[in-house]
């Protein structure tokens, strides 16, 4: 498959499992996308007690909502984070690089970097060794992953060596393959998204 075919196959498979796939030209545009997504969404519901947090009106699940929206982006390079934090500040969002554990009752947007993509299933492989990275992909209502187009591989067997390298050094690792948002069909086989994790998954495809 040519690089372009890989991108197309990846996008088609990811969209087939309800991921939103977006191609953007630059990192700056990607960060702007993150801010826009956050601005356009309803504030996150606070699903559990969170002492000291200001609470807004009840959300769709009859839980109070955040007055200040939260974006977590623990994996971004320093200058990218600074850029994102600045735009967030302008919008009044809290932008986190660490300490996500303080907000387990739910945040608005989590931003992560996918290490590579798998075209056959529209899957992102994420290095989630860092706890903040892991958490921000779990407890956010919208999870956004940034994926470089050049790191899309055809199928699982073709990434075996890379994965082995990650896991083979004797240091603990935690690797997550993500394919679409959190979903279930446990009640009457009816599909529903967002049972525990993100209600939406957006994948931003970056040019190198």
């Amino acid at each position: 498959m040519t690089p372009q075919e890989l991108v197309e196959a990846f996008s088609a498979k990811a969209q087939a499992v309800n991921a939103v796939v977006q191609e953007v030209p630059t990192m700056a545009a990607a960060l702007q996308y993150v801010v826009d997504v956050c601005a356009n969404k309803a504030p996150a519901e606070i699903l559990a007690d969170e002492p000291g947090t200001e609470k807004g009106p009840l959300g769709p699940n009859k839980q109070p909502t955040r007055v200040q929206k939260i974006v977590a982006a623990p994996q971004l390079a320093e200058e990218d984070f600074a850029l994102l934090a600045k735009s967030c500040e302008e919008k009044g969002f809290l932008c986190l690089r660490e300490g996500v554990r303080k907000y387990l009752s739910g945040i608005d947007v989590g931003v992560g970097l996918a290490e590579l993509g798998v075209a056959a299933s529209g899957t992102c492989l994420c290095n989630t060794d860092n706890e903040d990275v892991r958490l921000s992909g779990m407890i956010s209502e919208i999870s956004i992953l940034l994926l470089k187009k050049s790191t899309i591989y055809p199928d699982l067997p073709s990434i075996a060596d890379k994965l082995r390298d990650r896991m083979g050094h004797g240091e603990p690792t935690y690797t997550t393959f993500i394919t679409g948002p959190s979903r279930t069909a446990d009640i009457e086989r009816v599909a529903a998204v967002g049972v525990h994790g993100p209600l939406e998954l957006h994948i931003i495809l970056l040019e190198d």
Partner: peptide, 18 residues
């Protein structure tokens, strides 16, 4: 499904700030 939403490999006792 081609793959489930999450396929996780936990290799060792990783970071935990609980």
């Amino acid at each position: 499904q081609r793959l489930t939403s999450y396929f996780t490999l936990m290799c060792g006792a990783g970071q935990c700030q609980a």
